[in-house]
Amino acid sequence: MDSSEHDIYRAAIHGDREAFEMIIRTQSRALFAIAYGVLQNREEAEDVVQDTLVKAWKTRWRVRDPEKFPAWLSTIARHRARDVARRRRSVPFPTDTEEPIDPGNDAAAANLRENEVNEQVRAALSTLPELHRAALTLRYFEAMDYASIERTLGLSNGALRGILGRAMAAMRQRLRPALATME
């Protein structure tokens, strides 16, 4: 973290709204990725990010070390998302409306196949531990380099590499049939 970034975090902690808005601009996409990893639902993830930012502003005085601000933000987001997911569990998961399949249409068939793969990927993702999901979404949503992910999630380099390695391996295992068809 360079010094200007550090200053921004410190200003935000001391109540500078402009600094905080700048943080929103730089961090909210990452937060969205994390929330999405937990919830796999865009609207809910967006709400979670919103709540996270408001809560972070109200409790910003709790952060003593500006270095840890991003990690703290992502922790709030993860907890918040987990709360939402837990509350949702009682409500039946909304299944995607089955579109009528027209096997004769080639494009439709391709589309259908693609949807199916998407569904499989999402299902595989949802079986991973929360942190693994967050690391994957950060990487693939925002194409963040490892250093940024480490800072966002508050991890060391070794830990992140291990997490991503295991996450990729687990995904591979779950999606092996789909992968086989792709090759």
């Binding site: 601009r25 909210s28 969205f32 919103q50 990927v121 693939y140 949503f141 194409a143 999606l175």
Partner: peptide, 23 residues
């Protein structure tokens, strides 16, 4: 292959460009 698949499926799920402004 896995990497390609993920790039294809997950990248499209990422936040839209107006997301930050909305936040």
């Amino acid at each position: 292959t896995m990497h390609q698949l993920l790039e294809k499926t997950l990248a499209q799920e990422s936040a839209d460009p107006a997301f930050e402004q909305r936040m």
